[in-house]
Nucleic acid binder design. Structure first.
Length: 209
DNA sequence: CTACCGATTGACT
DNA sequence: GTCAATCGGTAGA
């Protein structure tokens, strides 16, 4: 039993430091239901974006129309576009504190056929490896910006029956694709999981430019 | 209004 | 490994 019996994580789960939420979201089940059916996957990679001292955070320079969801209450989705593609975050900490966790990759476990169709028949490993790929696989777009993830409707996150990852199985490293605050170890993923979007940067001290 | 740029991806050398 | 596509959001005139 599948995933249909699992309840959404409560708001308290999200009402915390985004680093704690990012780590604990690993191994959780991301569930999506729409008119096409049901699909779900295990979260294997996340990144935390902090409310303070984090220039890479979209909210670093204050609230705008785009990032408004991050200033709202915890447990809601913040969905933004980059290069015309969608990415999904879970908002953390109380309203007014703009922090969030970017969900970067999932391991497909339910509705795999549907997810592959949405991804134009991509190989299983490529179906949801990367923040935009997983949104396409789950049919997540702007319409879900601000969606409440604690209701168990449409889109939510739940604790699956499978065991919680041990701390030793979680790798922390630097975030991907940003041009500031590149040294903060705010990316987390499950070690050796083939659905993680890309491996850790070899050695921060080797970084050029 | 225009100019700039990006929490990416897929194609290509 | 490198690089351009491509367009909404943002800032500034």
């Amino acid at each position: 039993m599948p995933a249909c019996d699992v309840k959404p994580l409560p708001r308290d789960f999200y009402d915390r430091d985004p680093v704690a939420v990012a780590r604990e979201l690993l191994g959780m089940l991301l569930v999506r239901i729409n008119s096409e059916g049901r699909s779900a996957g295990i979260i294997v990679e996340t990144e935390a974006y902090l409310a303070r001292n984090d220039p890479a955070n979209h909210a670093y320079r204050g609230q705008t129309r785009r990032n408004a969801s991050m200033f709202g209450p915890p447990g809601h989705a913040y969905i933004y576009t980059i290069h015309t593609r969608w990415c999904l975050n879970a908002v953390t900490e109380p309203a007014g504190v703009p922090s969030a966790v970017l969900i970067r990759a999932i391991e497909p476990v339910e509705g795999v056929k549907l997810m592959r169709e949405r991804r134009d028949g991509a190989e299983l490993r490529e179906v949801a490896r990367g923040p935009w790929r997983l949104c396409q696989a789950l049919a997540i777009d702007r319409a879900l910006d601000g969606h409440d993830l604690t209701l168990g409707r449409g889109l939510w996150i739940a604790r699956p029956n499978s065991p919680t990852p041990t701390p030793a199985s979680i790798v922390s490293t630097t975030r991907v694709g940003i041009s500031s605050a590149t040294d903060l170890p705010l990316r987390f993923y499950l070690a050796d999981n083939p659905f993680v979007s890309r491996p850790a940067r070899p050695d921060p001290s080797e970084r050029q430019k």
